[in-house]
């Protein structure tokens, strides 16, 4: 039973279906061990956007205020996509490498664990 309802067979409508977002899909990004940023961030990205735009433009704009950000060695960064290990292709589009609607991208920066290693 997917809902307790007065009317038998009642169904709901997903308010966040991908077609409601025009040319975009929702993507969530999160930098691990840096909880100066209180939660993962949500973005409407077109699936054609190259992954490199996330690394080159989005992350510096929003995570740049953290003193660790400029110390990141991008060759050592570890990513997961929807809970699975993931090696992004910066040239290819996000859609072509499995980043779908409401996908969750988390990244770890080895050796950088926040302010005084506090995880913040």
């Amino acid at each position: 039973m997917a809902v307790t309802a007065l009317k038998p067979g009642y169904t709901g409508q997903n308010l966040d279906a991908v077609e409601n977002f025009g040319p975009n899909q929702l993507v969530y990004l999160h930098w691990e061990k840096h909880l100066m940023f209180c939660a993962a961030l949500a973005f409407p990205f077109p699936p054609e956007m190259p992954f490199g735009a996330i690394v080159g433009e989005v992350l510096p704009q929003f995570y740049g205020p953290h003193p660790d950000f400029e110390k990141i060695d991008w060759s050592t960064v570890r990513w997961t996509l929807d809970g699975e290990d993931f090696v992004p292709d910066l040239e290819a589009s996000i859609g072509s490498q499995g980043v779908g609607h409401k996908s969750m991208l988390r990244f770890w920066t080895p050796g950088l664990d926040g302010l005084g290693d506090s995880g913040a």
Binding site: Y28, M36, A39, L41, L115, S118, A120
Partner: peptide, 29 residues
């Protein structure tokens, strides 16, 4: 002291430097 003081200290310093921190992206809910 272990988890929360460091970010409060950083934010206070940023504000003192004229750069009070506001998160300009929207959060995941």
């Amino acid at each position: 002291d272990k988890y929360y003081r460091p970010r409060l200290d950083l934010w206070k310093q940023m504000a003192a430097d004229g750069n009070r921190y506001y998160n300009m992206a929207l959060p995941q809910l």
